[in-house]
């Protein structure tokens, strides 16, 4: 699992990755020390849960599979990885298309691992 997270971190523009349980607790992370990964995990879980409920109520195309949130200082990508949430922090100048392609594969691998 750590290997997958590390491989994602090698993509230019990626700042860190977290794997979070649906309860908001951190499963694993590979992120700069200065970041409070515990708080980020809890916040990401809360965002994910709000979004999932809203999507279900809106009847807007089944379950949520990915959320890309762009801010003035960078972006985050939330992906479903089985029962877990896979969060990636991305710098503003990153090639988002490339990052998303790599993340899709990584999320599928993580989902397999989570199922086992």
């Amino acid at each position: 699992m750590k290997e997958i997270l590390r491989s994602i971190n090698k993509i230019p523009g990626v700042r860190g990755t977290l794997l979070i349980g649906q309860d908001g607790l951190l499963i694993d992370s590979d992120i700069e020390d200065s970041q409070d990964s515990g708080t980020m995990a809890a916040v990401a879980s809360s965002v994910n849960s709000t979004l999932s409920h809203a999507i279900a109520r809106m009847n807007a195309g089944g379950k949520m599979t990915r959320f890309v949130m762009n801010g003035s200082a960078g972006s985050i990508v939330l992906l479903s990885a089985g029962d877990a949430i896979f969060l990636t922090l991305v710098r503003k100048d990153a090639n988002m298309g490339m990052v998303l392609v790599e993340l899709k594969d990584a999320a599928a691998k993580l989902a397999d691992m989570m199922d086992k």
Binding site: R66, F67, N70, G74, I76
Partner: peptide, 12 residues
Amino acid sequence: LTLGEFEDGIID
């Protein structure tokens, strides 16, 4: 989430 000001979001 260290993103600064929120600009936009894309939900798939």
